[in-house]
Simulated scan of single mutants.
Amino acid sequence: MTQTPRLVATDLDGTLVGRDRTVSPRTVEVLHRLDAAGIVIVLVTGRPIRWLHPVYDQLTVRPIAICANGAATYDPSTDSIVHSTPIEPVTLAEICSRLRATVPGVVFAVERDGGREMRHEEEFPVGPWEVNHESVGPVTHEELLTRPAAKLLVRAGVQQPDEFTALVGACLDGLGEATNSSSSGMVEVSAVGVTKATALARVAREHAVPSAEVVAFGDMPNDLAMLAWAGRGVAMANGHPAVLAAAHDVTTATNEDDGVAVYLESLYRY
């Protein structure tokens, strides 16, 4: 990268957001200054839309969000999905059939409408904060496959995340994209060709910003494609080993110590 970036793209969990799910005042201030200076800010996350609002509530800016690992692009100013690339029901059924035939004890959930709604098989574990939530609930396996899904979520008990992701990816055989973004052993499947990078490239084109003028931050395997696409892909100091190895640069501080803010202050000379 030979010039100051005109677009800043950042993952949320493990990157911009701390373990306590907060965005620090320092980070909020840096993003506010960038926005005021005309820098395009894009949130790029695996989170579903229903998990975005606690982040927006902490910010003084309202950037576009690429969510569900690139399957949906969300505009908070209009509360609308401006672009969506879901897994269609026929493909969803084929993916589940292949995984059922290969992975013992596999269970599924789907994020629909960019993640405004989640439906899961009865045995699929959900977080305590979402139990009995009106947009989250159990359905039969057949019902799971009746509508397009932003993401298919795959679990099979306790699994080593990277190995399980590789197993799921092998089963897909070109039907979708498999990745992971946590240590829980859950694999996230998107439509074929859908990644954070493809969605970010689309948003950047809309702002007439080439990849060479994009700086992107991330910490987990679902960020790899985005960091490779950006002119400057920056891994968090707390990042997954594969991300640390692949990034152009690494922050000096973790997400718990304002790593993104520290890096941006230096990059833009605040």
Rank of each mutant, 00 (worst) to 15 (best):
S135F: 05
S135Y: 04
V136D: 00
V136G: 00
G137T: 08
V139E: 02
V139T: 06
T140S: 15
T140Q: 08
T140L: 09
H141Y: 13
E142W: 01
E142T: 14
E142N: 08
E143R: 09
E143K: 04
E143P: 01
E143V: 12
L144C: 04
L145A: 06
T146E: 13
R147Y: 01
P148I: 02
P148R: 03
P148N: 01
P148W: 04
A149G: 10
K151I: 08
K151E: 08
L152A: 07
L153D: 00
L153W: 00
L153I: 01
V154K: 07
R155Q: 14
G157F: 04
V158I: 10
V158Q: 14
Q159V: 07
P161Q: 06
P161D: 03
P161W: 07
P161I: 07
D162C: 03
F164K: 05
A166T: 11
A166G: 02
A166D: 11
A166W: 08
A166V: 09
L167A: 03
L167Q: 09
G169Y: 03
G169T: 05
G169P: 12
G169D: 13
C171M: 01
C171S: 12
C171A: 11
C171T: 02
L172H: 01
L172Y: 01
L172G: 03
L172E: 03
D173V: 00
D173W: 02
D173S: 10
G174P: 01
L175I: 06
L175F: 00
L175R: 08
E177R: 00
A178P: 03
A178F: 02
S181C: 10
S181H: 05
S182D: 11
S182C: 11
S183D: 12
S184Q: 07
S184M: 04
G185E: 04
M186I: 10
M186L: 11
E188G: 01
V189E: 02
A191D: 11
A191S: 13
V192W: 04
V192S: 06
V192T: 05
G193M: 04
V194W: 11
T195S: 15
K196H: 07
A197R: 03
T198R: 12
A199C: 05
L200Q: 11
R202D: 13
R202A: 15
R202Y: 06
R202V: 06
V203Y: 01
V203F: 01
A204G: 09
R205C: 13
R205N: 15
E206Q: 15
E206D: 15
A208I: 07
A208N: 15
V209A: 14
V209P: 15
V209G: 15
P210F: 06
P210H: 08
P210E: 06
S211T: 15
E213L: 14
E213P: 14
V214D: 11
V214C: 15
V214Q: 11
V215S: 09
A216C: 14
A216V: 10
G218V: 12
P221K: 13
P221Q: 13
P221A: 12
N222C: 06
N222F: 07
N222I: 04
D223C: 09
L224K: 11
A225R: 12
A225D: 15
M226C: 12
M226W: 09
L227W: 10
A228V: 12
A228Y: 06
W229E: 10
W229S: 07
A230E: 12
G231D: 05
R232K: 12
R232Y: 00
G233V: 03
G233H: 04
G233Y: 03
G233K: 04
